[in-house]
Design a protein around this nucleic acid. Sequence first.
DNA 1: GGGCAGGAGTTTATCGATATAATCGCGCTG
DNA 2: CAGCGCGATTATATCGATAAACTCCTGCCC
Lengths: 341, 341
Amino acid sequence: MSDVAHAAGVSTMTVSNVLTGRRRVSTQTRTRVERAAADLGYELNLTARHLRAGRTDTVALAVPFFDHPYFGELAARLARLLAPEGRHLVVEQTGPSREAELAAVTRARWQLYDGVLLSVVGMTAADLDDLRTSVPLVLLGEQQMPARYDHVRMDNVGGARLATAHLLATGARRIAVVGGAEPSADAGMMPARTLGWALAHEDAGAAAEPGLVVRAPADLASGREAVRRIVRDGIAFDAVLAVTDTLAAGVLAGLAEAGLRVPDDVQVVGFDNLASSELTVPALSTVDPGHEHLATEALRLLDVAVARGPGRGADGAADAPRHVTAPAELVLRATTRERRG
Amino acid sequence: MSDVAHAAGVSTMTVSNVLTGRRRVSTQTRTRVERAAADLGYELNLTARHLRAGRTDTVALAVPFFDHPYFGELAARLARLLAPEGRHLVVEQTGPSREAELAAVTRARWQLYDGVLLSVVGMTAADLDDLRTSVPLVLLGEQQMPARYDHVRMDNVGGARLATAHLLATGARRIAVVGGAEPSADAGMMPARTLGWALAHEDAGAAAEPGLVVRAPADLASGREAVRRIVRDGIAFDAVLAVTDTLAAGVLAGLAEAGLRVPDDVQVVGFDNLASSELTVPALSTVDPGHEHLATEALRLLDVAVARGPGRGADGAADAPRHVTAPAELVLRATTRERRG
DNA sequence: GGGCAGGAGTTTATCGATATAATCGCGCTG
DNA sequence: CAGCGCGATTATATCGATAAACTCCTGCCC
């Protein structure tokens, strides 16, 4: 910067003022400085600016996996919201296991950003309780989180309940939950969605049979595998609630393999409303967890946290953290039948 | 840091030495310092370190879209390769249009990283020619790039040729190219893959009919739309080469909609070998563009560029840039028939 | 003409860590 | 016992930008 200043015959401070536009500079010197900067191919050093000014105009999204479409879509949505304000999003990976996630979270890397949106999957509330960081933090969580963080969550229970209710209303009687778990409101995404399934049965006065809860890791191959298992075990079912769209895609593959027609023999509903779910065969009915709402709210909370300054994230003296739940919505496509009556 | 130093009764330099382990420190002082740091909840400031030491142990991957599975998978692969060395990957989005991509590229943001892997899509060689940056840069490109950059590319022409050859060998006679374009080796991904299609026909002494080149943007909905269009226009075809797996997924949906059986009536081959392609119905045959090879080579080139120091990226004095082409490979699944004989 | 307002530009200190050179002890040797 | 070597520790300068205070100057009002 001093080179540019020298070339333009001014002080570095003036160069800084020209480049950031923070203070008035006469048109004359401004053009001189701009010319000098262009001639020298000068580029502002963002690291130095960050150190001095404390601002990076960059928000990080920390996700457990890079290669899950859900996170890609989330990142794209956030980037689209930040771009008009001249801010940037970078995506970091926390790690595929709970241990890795924990290790990543402990890292000091987050100081590099104005704020961090942490998408939590494997970590428990207890893990997060230990977490100390001075960086403004907003959790994007599936589950219940320690109260002292700002937190935006999707309505897992409500969404699954909605979907299951629709299946029941269309005549389904034996609804398998692929990716299910022990029903619980605050033990993670799978238990929560399973709870929604159970509650919908209760609402309808129907029995939620535990034998229809099919455990499966949330990846592509498992959905197909789960169907194979149900069929092999001779368990009767006329509908599937897949706890993620990814699992649902596998389920559709498995059903096709087994010669079962969708939605005539078996109805299927997913959860997440991924972009790709519109193009499964048949097009997947699914639960939209309020993506847009979730993204805007997360950024709004983060902005507030950033505005009230860093270093207050962890200590009790900070303002009361906000908790927001995005409303889930049912998206009906071709893997479900029409509601009767 | 000086707080910690004070608490431990040593100088800041000693604290630094303890924390980085760069120099010997007596066990006694080391434990004192570690205790003090822990007590105060001290965290090293990476921004300051970066400014002084010039190293961040962070590599950026800049992609045009966050929400395309191809990039997610690429990021995951790179992160997996970097993790064991204690280095980090962050993903940035350059932008959805050529203009946005160009603007992002011009930004000074890249100084924040030790090096940048730039995944180029919309930009032309001419755009890149203007690009000045002092940061070590490796291009991950579909197409021909200015020679002065290190560059890892996939074999678009060869891969499409391979796939088309297989279709011809299994008896296909009218192979539509969905996402096709004017054949050309250096005008982008679509023209290159279309060229491979044309060359395979030439190899087999068959005619590559221009009427079978179906233009389509590379998104999910377009594949289905393309099939609708071909069918509506009454164009005869017995196979589809989709230039991306994403398009292929749409094509499968379109074929199902049209009542055409795969692979009996129409064979389909994609390109990219996305993880999700294994689970289409039927499972997609596709071209693997040498993902793993591509990722390792890109990092190897970047490491060399980083090692020979920054600031040499753009000027002619640097070592000769390397260009690597990853070998494409055909992955046969259920959307193609067996080769005859 | 004195004084004051305010625009344009400069000086100085600082953000937090680290490379480098200097310093301090202390044991050992000729 | 002077002097040397060497490991441990410290003082200082520095990375590059910017906030804040300060100087200078012009114009204008009373």
